[in-house]
């Protein structure tokens, strides 16, 4: 066997090793979280409030809080994102403004999530006096989700064939009618896929809600957007860093992580299925 052949075998297997390591890690990671968290899962874990300083009981308010925060933030970010994408693809004038918008979106995408937290604390909690509340957290998360939604929507809108637009304009439709009744509806499934992916991302964020929305413990569910909320990711963090009974808190943290992971996976699976269905049914 000559040197080149040896190099080939060693090299290719080295690459294979990287992949195997990643797979091994992922499987053991999921196994550890699910096996340690699985033992605390029960019906009451989903439906009960935390009890006795969070050493027992369920995580119902954290589940509800995360759902509220996530849904509200996407409802705020989605229209903004879609209209920005429409601007980027179909108006795109003046050119310099489009360049600046693009730079701003890309820069926002790279801002660390803790900085969004500080921004939310300053603008929403303090200047706008919304206090630590559901709405402050949702607004902060909305801005964090915006770049992802803009990029996904832009790609979706760009993938609508040019002929759709031309056909509609040729029939005498105005630019608004063409965009709102032809292009956006055609791109909608892809836009929604992007939105769903960002739901998964937003649901797991901790740092942005630490000072804007999340509370360690709450006796009741939020009944207004001005209430502070519990949230799954923050609950995990709190269980691991506060309180005095780690023996009882760590298993609950694992259990909460299982619920959060299941939520995130369910959301991404939905996105993948929708994407698959679109690809199958596409006729152009």
């Amino acid at each position: 066997m000559n040197k080149r052949k040896l190099q080939e075998i060693v090299g290719v297997n080295f690459l294979r090793l990287g992949v195997i390591f990643t797979a091994f890690f992922l499987i053991s990671f999921l196994y550890i979280i699910f096996s340690k968290g699985g033992s605390v899962l029960s019906w009451t874990f989903f439906t009960d409030f935390p009890r006795e300083g969070m050493t027992t009981g369920g995580i119902y308010p954290a589940i509800v809080g995360t759902l509220y925060l996530t849904i509200l933030s996407i409802l705020i970010a989605l229209p903004l994102g879609v209209f920005t994408a429409i601007y980027m693809v179909h108006l795109a004038k003046p050119y310099w403004l489009m360049r600046i918008v693009r730079i701003a979106v890309n820069t926002l995408a790279g801002v660390p999530s803790i900085i969004y937290g500080l921004f939310g604390l300053t603008l929403f909690v303090r200047i706008m006096q919304l206090e630590v509340s559901l709405i402050s957290g949702a607004l902060t998360l909305a801005i964090l989700a915006l770049p992802v939604i803009i990029n996904a929507s832009e790609e979706a809108i760009r993938s609508v064939p040019r002929s759709f637009r031309e056909g509609s304009l040729a029939l005498g439709a105005t630019e608004r009618q063409t965009i709102m009744r032809v292009i956006v509806p055609t791109a909608l499934p892809n836009i929604l896929t992007g939105a769903i992916i960002s739901i998964g991302r937003v649901a797991g964020e901790t740092a942005p809600i630490m000072f804007t929305a999340a509370t360690f413990y709450s006796r009741m569910l939020p009944t207004s957007i001005n209430h502070e909320v519990m949230a799954l990711p923050y609950h995990i963090y709190a269980l691991m860093t506060e309180g005095s009974k780690p023996d009882q808190q760590v298993p609950i943290a694992y259990g909460t992580a299982v619920v959060l992971l299941l939520l995130v996976m369910f959301v991404s699976a939905t996105a993948i299925i929708i994407r698959y269905k679109i690809r199958k049914s596409r006729k152009w």
């Binding site: 998964g200 995990i236 694992y254 992580a257 959060l260 995130v264 996976m265 991404s268």
Partner: peptide, 22 residues
Amino acid sequence: IKPMIELLAGIPSVVYGLFGMA
């Protein structure tokens, strides 16, 4: 491999933190 990487990308950072710490 591709969905595996996507799955890895979708895990919230606090869950990674929990794994590291506990």
